[in-house]
């Protein structure tokens, strides 16, 4: 067989197990990158209502960018989940008969072994989170909150008079994300749900980030690999600690209306 006989086309990449792993890793980079930015952006809740609502207003003020990013994230998430399910099926079929005596593992972690489980919980959480804070379907009373620009003082004032809001030009009305955020996390059940979901996200990321670096072949040598594992866990910790600080801060009364 000559060397040129096997063309390395995109189709062979897509079909192979390594190809599926690369899809997981590349979509993973995008999703992790978003998580970091998302968490940092939300830290502005600690700077008060005006900063937070201005930030939200700015994001919504650039719809092309907003929808572009949303499209990339959606495609990444769909590809990530499809590749995960495909690999899981291949891996289950690769060992049709289980060991009679459980394997005694040496280095792997529960996080690494239950990636699909943590991933599916995170997926369910993402759906809930979008319904809750992006679409406002689950708690509409906490979602439909607005501020109106008081022209005289140039400050933003809460106003929920629907008739007035409908009449005003769009640049004089903005979503009161700060109040939505605080009212959302005042409910202990919702705060608890976010907390649990974030712990599973922490579990997912604690393996995912290093795994992604290995899949992309970026941890050459034992030291580099160990370092990447540490970096991965640190990123997981930073993202999740930032995220869980929000419901905790509201519950503790540190962030309030």
């Amino acid at each position: 067989m000559t060397d040129a006989k096997r063309p390395g086309r995109l189709s062979t990449l897509a079909q192979s197990t390594i190809g599926a792993k690369i899809v997981m890793a590349v979509t993973g980079v995008i999703l992790v990158g978003f998580l970091v930015v998302h968490m940092l952006g939300n830290l502005q809740i600690y700077l008060g209502p005006d900063t937070m609502n201005h930030y939200a207003q700015t994001l919504k003020g650039t719809p092309a960018l907003l929808w572009g990013v949303r499209a990339v994230l959606l495609v990444s998430l769909v590809l990530h989940v499809l590749a995960a399910l495909r690999l899981k099926k291949i891996n289950n079929e690769a060992r049709p008969q289980a060991y009679a005596v459980p394997r005694r593992y040496r280095v792997t972690t529960p996080a690494a072994r239950f990636m699909l489980l943590s991933g599916l919980v995170v997926l369910a959480f993402i759906v809930y989170h979008l319904l809750h804070f992006t679409i406002g379907a689950t708690n509409p009373a906490d979602f439909n909150l607005h501020e109106v620009l008081d022209v005289a003082t140039q400050t933003w004032v809460r106003n929920d008079n629907e008739q007035l809001l409908a009449k005003l030009p769009p640049e004089m009305v903005r979503h009161d994300v700060y109040s939505m955020f605080v009212r959302g996390f005042t409910n202990p059940l919702i705060a608890g749900t976010y907390l649990v979901a974030q712990l599973l996200l922490a579990m997912h990321l604690s393996h995912a980030v290093a795994s992604m670096l290995h899949t992309l072949g970026l941890s050459k040598g034992l030291d580099a690999r160990q370092r990447n594992i540490t970096i991965g866990r640190a990123i997981a910790a930073v993202v999740v600690l930032g995220n869980i600080s929000f419901p905790i801060a509201v519950q503790a009364g540190l962030v309030h209306l």
Binding site: R6, T17, I18, K21, A94, T108, S211, H214
Partner: peptide, 19 residues
């Protein structure tokens, strides 16, 4: 070719457990 054959034999995919 080797990766193609590896997949065809029904081996699983690496998820970096390092076992």
């Amino acid at each position: 070719r080797m990766v193609e054959q590896m997949d065809r034999e029904g081996f699983g995919a690496c998820t970096n457990h390092r076992e």
